[in-house]
């Protein structure tokens, strides 16, 4: 009986310690820019969910594609119906690992390398990017930028409008994490 209580106590301590490694936010900002001289195309979502595990140095990022807002409703419709096919592929995901060393106890901004898999429109690609991470007391701020080509994710853009959309789309993310509390 005693042993059970002790092991139970240990597992509770272990669990609560485990939870302290996890930082999360559901309000991460993500925007992308595919503007050309012909057309301004920018979209933003404030509802990406992202998690950092500071013990395993693992980062996860997810966003629902219909949560992106454009300047025009017509752009949103084209984005969701023709390009991202949001009904079939409602999410975009990134699963990655911080590959360069980082001191989570420091409160100075650090630029780190992140490698991982970006999945959208049902297609996964290995990507690497630089992220700026600022650890703080009970919070972590992070921002990152990545360039992708729509064609790499099987997104076909008709030649009639190809010149209106940038060849490379710049995706920027910006997140303020807080400790995960269950």
């Amino acid at each position: 009986m005693n042993r059970l209580i002790i092991s139970l106590a240990f597992s509770i301590i272990f669990l609560s310690a485990g939870a302290q490694n996890i930082f999360i936010t559901k309000d991460a900002r993500i925007n992308f820019n595919s503007s050309t001289s012909v057309e301004d195309i920018v979209a933003e979502s404030h509802q990406a969910t992202t998690v950092i595990d500071i013990e395993k140095n693992v980062v996860k990022f997810s966003v629902l594609t219909t949560s992106f807002k454009f300047r025009r409703a017509l752009m949103e419709e084209h984005f969701n119906e023709n390009y991202m096919e949001s009904a079939k592929f409602p999410k975009a995901n990134f699963n990655g690992k911080i590959t360069s060393p980082i001191d989570w106890k420091s409160d100075k901004p650090a630029v780190v390398d992140v490698k991982g898999t970006l999945t959208m429109h049902g297609i996964s690609n290995e990507v690497s990017l630089k992220a700026q991470i600022t650890p703080g007391k009970g919070k972590i701020s992070a921002s990152a930028e990545i360039k992708v080509t729509p064609e790499a994710f099987g997104i076909q853009i008709p030649s009639a409008v190809r010149d209106k959309i940038a060849k490379e789309v710049t995706i920027k993310i910006d997140a303020d994490y807080t400790p995960f509390q269950q």
Binding site: K26, Q47, T49, S62, V63, L64, T66, S67, P90, K91
Partner: peptide, 13 residues
């Protein structure tokens, strides 16, 4: 609202 899917939570926008 309009249901946009599930991440951790189910989002209705």
């Amino acid at each position: 609202g309009r249901c946009s899917g599930m991440l951790m939570d189910i989002q209705v926008i």
